[in-house]
Nucleic acid binder design. Structure first.
Lengths: 98, 98
DNA sequence: CTCCTGATTCGAAATCCATCTAAGTAGTAC
DNA sequence: GTACTACTTAGATGGATTTCGAATCAGGAG
C-alpha cells in the first residue's frame, strides 16, 4: 500500500471516526427519500447548530455525503458509490494488496 | 443507531484513521504465513521504534490485530472476523439500520 | 427594504493525538 | 551474574480536533 493511498484512505476513516458523524451518516442514509434536512439532524443531539454543521462539513469533505439547498433548508444525501467502495476494502484482497 | 454503538464503531474507525496504521495493517495482512515480526514493520517507516509500537498497540486495542511473543521477537496477525464484520458495514442495511 | 428563521463561517478554549527521548521489561548468549 | 537485542512503557511537547458563542450569509414573509 502506497503512502499516498494510505493517506487518502485514512482521511475517509478519520471522517468516520466520530460517534456524532456516524450517527449523522446513519440518519441521512436511513432517512425517507434518502435525504435529510439539517433541521432534522440537529434535534437528536445535545450539540449546538454550528457543531452539527461542522460535522456535516467533515463528512462532505470526505465525499461521504452531499448537500443541496432548496429554499430555506439544506438537504443531505449519502454518496452510495463511496460507501460501496468502502465495503470491499476489508475483504482480504485489498488488505493484502493482492 | 444507538449512541453506544456509534461510540464503539467510531473507536474502530479511529484506529484506522491514520496512514501509518493502515500501512501497518496492510503489511501484517499481506505478510507470509499471515504474521509479521515487529522488527520487519519498523524499517519501512521513518519513525522511531516506540512510535511503531504505539500504533500497533492502538490496532491491538481496537481488536484489529493480535500479537504473540515467540522468543526474542513479537509477531502480529490480523483478526479476520473483525475485518469481515467491517466489510458488511457499508452495505446499505447497516447504515440504514434496516 | 426590514425582520425572522435556517445554516454556515469565524475565532477562541479545551481536549486529544502523534511523535520523540529516556527508561524499563523480556529474552538470548556468554 | 553481565551484556546485548527486541520491544514496550512513561513523560513531554507541538499540532490537530471538538466544541462553543458571535457574527455572517441565504431565503421567505410582511
Amino acid at each position: 500500500m502506497r503512502e499516498d493511498e494510505a493517506a487518502e484512505l485514512a482521511g475517509v476513516f478519520k471522517a468516520l471516526a466520530d460517534p456524532v458523524r456516524l450517527r449523522l451518516l446513519n440518519m441521512i442514509a436511513s432517512a425517507e427519500d434518502g435525504e435529510a434536512c439539517v433541521c432534522d439532524l440537529t434535534g437528536p443531539f445535545e450539540l449546538s447548530g454550528p457543531t452539527i454543521s461542522h460535522h456535516l462539513k467533515v463528512l462532505r469533505n470526505a465525499g461521504l455525503i452531499e448537500g443541496e439547498r432548496r429554499g430555506t433548508w439544506v438537504y443531505y444525501r449519502v454518496v452510495p458509490e463511496k460507501l460501496t467502495r468502502l465495503s470491499g476494502l476489508f475483504a482480504l484482497p485489498v488488505l493484502t494488496g493482492t
